[in-house]
């Protein structure tokens, strides 16, 4: 009975996706469309490109390991650097009213600069390569983390701070066991936005100035007019975006279980 209901629920969810994919397949095959190759061709290209490796390596080919490791290393180093710097600076700014009032206009301006604008500048300064890509990503995604942290820290309940003071919780512990946990929901929201921005900036930096990574593979395929290969790159980036978001949500749900619980019961 429940299996039946489960199956029905699944069908209700995926039928439109199935119809869309099938329509795409049929129409493009009929017309012999070149720009939008049928999904089966894209999947085949995807497998040839990156997933022809042995089962022991999760079917990842050597090329996949090269491309992915380069792209993902830049993405995570940049994101993590921005995360650490954003939380540290954001906490300082959130705790100090003087610092906040001094820096707020500057920060609002820096956040408003569309990060790709600085790519040519970073290319001039750091030349094409890993450093340039990491700096581009870190500089582009630090703002949502920083501003959300400062917002969250400023919003910590005064009574929670007073409680910590009354019970002699020292400065260091107050920061790590009271202020940052209280601001954590906002910090995590900032980190999640930053992660999706980091993926965009990773692609941009690879499109503009790189010889390795998924983005450069994408532009290479386009220049060679190998459209299935190019589509494989697009789909791959979509899969990565989906996976990052899912993994991050999983982590967030685990770490902020108390927040969801407290909110549910309050409401």
């Amino acid at each position: 009975m429940s299996a039946l209901r489960l199956g029905r629920g699944l069908i209700e969810r995926v039928w439109l996706v199935a119809v869309a994919v099938a329509a795409w397949e049929i129409v493009t095959r009929r017309v012999g469309e070149t720009y939008f190759p049928p999904p089966s061709t894209i999947v085949k290209a995807l497998r040839e490109q990156w997933f022809s490796g042995p089962a022991s390596a999760l079917f990842l080919s050597d090329k996949a390991l090269d491309d992915f490791s380069a792209s993902l290393a830049h993405l995570f180093v940049g994101w993590a650097a921005a995360g650490v710097a954003g939380v540290a600076l954001g906490a300082a700014i959130g705790r100090s009213r003087v610092l906040h009032d001094l820096l707020d206009p500057v920060l609002q301006f820096l956040r408003a600069v569309p990060p790709p604008t600085l790519v040519p500048f970073f290319i001039m300064v750091f030349h094409i390569g890993a450093t340039m890509q990491i700096v581009t990503i870190a500089f582009g995604v630090v703002w949502p983390v920083l501003l959300n942290t400062s917002d969250g820290v400023r919003g910590v309940d005064a009574l929670q701070l007073e409680t910590a003071r009354v019970f002699g919780v020292g400065r260091f512990r107050r920061l790590f066991q009271v202020i940052l946990p209280a601001a954590a929901p906002k910090i995590f929201a900032g980190l999640r936005v930053a992660l999706s921005f980091a993926l965009i900036l990773m692609v941009i930096s690879e499109l503009v100035g790189s010889t390795e990574g998924i983005g450069s593979e994408l532009i290479g395929a386009q220049r060679a007019f190998e459209l299935p290969r190019m589509w494989a790159g697009i789909v791959m980036l979509g899969i990565l975006g989906f996976l990052f978001n899912a993994l991050f949500m999983l982590l967030e749900r685990r770490l902020l279980r108390w927040h969801a619980g407290a909110k549910r019961l309050a409401g």
């Binding site: 720009y35 999706s196 993926l199 965009i200 692609v203 941009i204 499109l207 983005g215 994408l218 532009i219 395929a221 386009q222 190019m230 589509w231 790159g233 697009i234 789909v235 980036l237 979509g238 899969i239 990565l240 975006g241 989906f242 990052f244 978001n245």
Partner: peptide, 12 residues
């Protein structure tokens, strides 16, 4: 569709 970074579609 949403997770596909829009800039990945620039070559297309």
């Amino acid at each position: 569709c949403r997770p596909i970074p829009s800039v990945a579609l620039i070559p297309l």
